[in-house]
Write a protein that binds this DNA or RNA. Structure first.
Length: 281
DNA sequence: AATCGTTCCTGATAGC
DNA sequence: TGCTATCAGGAACGAT
């Protein structure tokens, strides 16, 4: 499930791989955006805002891709076999999670930029660059940028009535935190996922601030998680999986105290936590 | 205005 | 073995 660290890993890789390339053709069996418009446009920059991947293109356009849960971008060579796209060579692109190709962008160097997305939830849109920048103003601050101070976090959380896990996953409050890193950050900060934001102490807020930055930075350093669908642009896995403290570790021992990790549903989403380290009261 | 529930989709998994 | 039912989940959207 691509969150800030996975998206950051992707754009860093893509900037090395596809910068300066021009789209020569487009194929999709699913997407409806004006694909012909992409032809002839050059990739000037690849960047990220929250979990959105943005390709700034020539002529004032930007291609927006949100991978949602199971989408990820891959670069390499494929061939079309009876309507299905399969890697042209042996290697990590043959990983089973890379086989759901619903969008193919042909580059002018013979390589292909492809979107693999098992659940077809990913969003692909063509925007005017200036309009997209306005759209992004609705999002919360980037937690790894300098402007995200402790005071800023407190300001963003002020007056929020919900449970802490739900609130920090709200992209309008803080950009880029999703289900995995929310659970991980709350474990790190020793805060119960259902604790109301209003009841967080000054110390807990400070711990949360540090924890969010810590888990996201570690995620980026390790190239993201790959226990499910996400893969890096070359098809290989990220290395965050072994660093997971709670996410999808229900029934396993807490790495801090040995208590069995529990799962509960908070706002229709799984939350994993240690019942000893993260008490509600 | 803010918050809550529903919806999109299909591979993986569990159950019979 | 093979079929069917259930689950996962980001964020847009509608409802309250």
């Amino acid at each position: 499930m691509p969150e800030l660290p996975e998206v950051e890993t992707t754009i860093r890789g893509l900037n090395k791989k596809v910068l300066g390339r021009t789209f020569v053709d487009v194929w999709s069996g699913w997407y409806k955006f004006p694909q012909k418009e992409l032809k002839g446009k050059k990739i000037l920059n690849v960047w990220r805002r929250a979990k959105n991947i943005i390709f700034d293109l020539s002529e004032g356009y930007s291609l927006l891709i949100h991978q949602k849960m199971t989408g990820h971008l891959l670069v390499g060579k494929w061939k079309n076999q009876n309507g299905k796209w399969v890697p042209a060579e042996k290697g990590p692109l043959n990983d089973p999670y890379n086989r759901f190709i619903h969008l193919v962008l042909f580059l002018d160097n013979g390589q292909i930029l492809a979107l693999s997305d098992a659940r077809k939830f990913a969003k692909v849109e063509l925007w005017k660059t200036n309009e997209l920048k306005k759209e992004f103003e609705k999002l919360g601050p980037e937690p790894l940028e300098k402007g995200f101070t402790f005071a800023k976090l407190k300001q963003r959380l002020a007056g929020k009535k919900g449970k802490v896990k739900q609130v920090i996953m709200d992209q309008a409050v803080i950009a880029g935190v999703g289900n995995i890193y929310a659970s991980e950050a709350l474990w790190e900060a020793k805060i119960h996922p259902e604790k109301p934001v209003l009841k967080l102490t000054e110390q807990e807020l400070e711990n949360l601030y540090k924890a969010i930055k810590k888990v996201l930075e570690l995620g980026i350093k390790l190239g993201g998680e790959s226990f499910s669908d996400y893969r890096k642009f070359d098809g290989t896995k990220g290395d965050f999986d072994s660093e997971r403290k709670v996410y999808r570790r229900e029934g396993q021992k807490c790495k801090r105290c040995g208590t069995k990790i529990k799962r509960l549903v908070v706002g229709q989403r799984s939350a994993f936590y240690c019942p000893f380290c993260q008490k509600l009261k």
